[in-house]
Amino acid sequence: MRRFLRRALRGTLGLAIGAMTAVAECFYVLFGGLALTVPALRQPVLAGARVLSEVERRRLEKYFGEENATNYTDRRAMAYLVPRCVIGLLCAAIFVLILLGAGSGVIIAAQLFEGQSPGGGAPADWYDPVTTVLFGGLLVFLALQGLIGAATLDARLAKRFFGPSRSEQLRRRLSELTTSRAEVVEAVNGERRRIERDLHDGVQQRLVALGMLLGRARRATDPEHASDLLRQAHEESQRALVDLREVSWRVYPIALDSDGLHPALEALAERSGIPVHLRVDLPQRPPAAIETVVYFVASEAVTNTIKHAAATRIDIDVERDGGRVRVRITDDGTGGARESGGGLSGLAMRVAAADGRFTVDSPLGGPTVVTAVLPCG
C-alpha cells in the first residue's frame, strides 16, 4: 500500500508539472508555428521545440518511469508539442476542477455542520448529508479517472513520438542477446567449476578414505581388526554414495524429467535441514528449460540459507503470473545477502540467460527474499 501511494503521489506531481509546462508549450506552438514561415527562424524554433520536448521526456522518465529514445529529430519534437500542449491543458483543467470541488466541499461541509442545507438559506434536511456524500464520492471518482486517463494519454503520446525506431529496437535486442550469450557461457563455466569442486571436496575425499580403509584391511593380520576396518569401509562407501547422490541432484534432478517441477521441489524440501514450506500454483506445466531454472534458483537459495543465514524457516512460492513464472524464496535468517555474492551471482546469470529478472531483498536482520521472474510464453 505504501508503495502504491508513493507511486500515486509521484504521478500526480508529474501531472501537475506537466500541466504547468503545457502553458508555455501552448504559447510556443502558437508563436513558433508562425515563426516557422520565416526561413531564417526555422532552425532556432525547431531547436527550442527539442528543448521543451526533452523537458517532457525527462519528466515522464522521472515521475512515471517511462523511458523513451533520445534520437528523435527536431521536426518530430515540434510535432509532438502540438498534441502535448492540448493534453497538458486538459490536465490543468482537471486540477482546476479538483481545486474548485475541494473548495466547494469545504463550504458545503461547513454549512451542513451549522445545520443549513447546501447553498444556505434553509435548514438542512435528513437527506442532504447523504446526497452530498454520494455526489462528492462520484465527483472524486471522476476526477481520479480523469487524472489516470490524462497520464495514460501523456505516456502513449510520448511513446508514439519518442519511442525507439525499428533499428533502435534491433540494436537493443542485439545488445541483450550478446549479453545473454556471455552470461550463458559464464553460467555454464560456473556450473562446471561447482561440480568439480563438489566432486573434489566431497566424493573424491570419501573414495580416498575408502581406499585407505580397504588397503589397511588387506594388510591386517588380526581378523577382528580386519573386520572392524571392513565395517568402517562399508560405512564410508555409504557416505560416498550419499555425497554422489547429492552431487547428481545438484547437477540435474531426474525428477524434473519424470515427474515435473512440483515433485522435484518437494524432494528438495524433504532433503533440507531447515523446515521448508512449499506452495506451487501452476495450472499448466512450464517448459522444461523454465522448470530447470526455477528448480536451481530454489535449490541454490535454500543451500545459501542453510549455510549462511541461520534461519529457522524457508518459504518457497512458485506461481504463474500471466505469461511468466515467478519463484520467491523467503527465509527468516540474519539477512545481509547480496546479489553479487558467489552463489547468487551465478543464479542471476542463469536467470538473465533465460530473459528473466532476478532480485534479492535482504536487509540486515532479515528477512531475505530471493525472487526470479521468467518468461513462459
Results as ranks from 00 to 15, higher is better:
Arg173Asp: 14
Val82Asn: 04
Glu196Cys: 07
Phe296Lys: 05
Ile94Trp: 09
Tyr80Trp: 13
Arg338Ala: 14
Gly101Trp: 01
Asp315Cys: 13
Leu30Gln: 14
Phe113Tyr: 14
Thr292Gln: 11
Pro44Asp: 00
Leu13Ser: 13
Arg218Glu: 13
Trp249Asp: 14
Arg197Lys: 15
Tyr295Met: 01
Val276Asn: 10
Glu114Ile: 00
Arg59Thr: 06
Gly105Asn: 13
Ser248Glu: 11
Val96Trp: 10
Gln284Thr: 15
Gln116Val: 03
Leu364Val: 14
Leu99Pro: 00
Gly137Asn: 12
Leu153Ile: 01
Val38Asp: 12
Glu319Trp: 11
Arg10Trp: 11
Pro287Ser: 14
Trp249Ala: 14
Ala124Asn: 06
Glu183Asn: 15
Ile87Trp: 12
Gly343Glu: 10
Ser345Trp: 02
Asp332Val: 11
Pro164Cys: 01
Pro287Phe: 07
Asp198Cys: 05
Asn304Gln: 14
Ala151Met: 09
Gly215Asn: 04
Val247Arg: 01
Ser299His: 06
Tyr63Pro: 01
Ala348Arg: 10
Cys91Gly: 14
Glu114Met: 13
Ala209Glu: 10
Ile17Arg: 10
Val51Gly: 02
Ala143Trp: 03
Val294Ser: 00
Leu157Tyr: 08
Glu266Lys: 12
Gly336Thr: 02
Arg58Leu: 11
Asp243Thr: 04
Ala22Gln: 02
Val247Phe: 03
Ala182Gly: 02
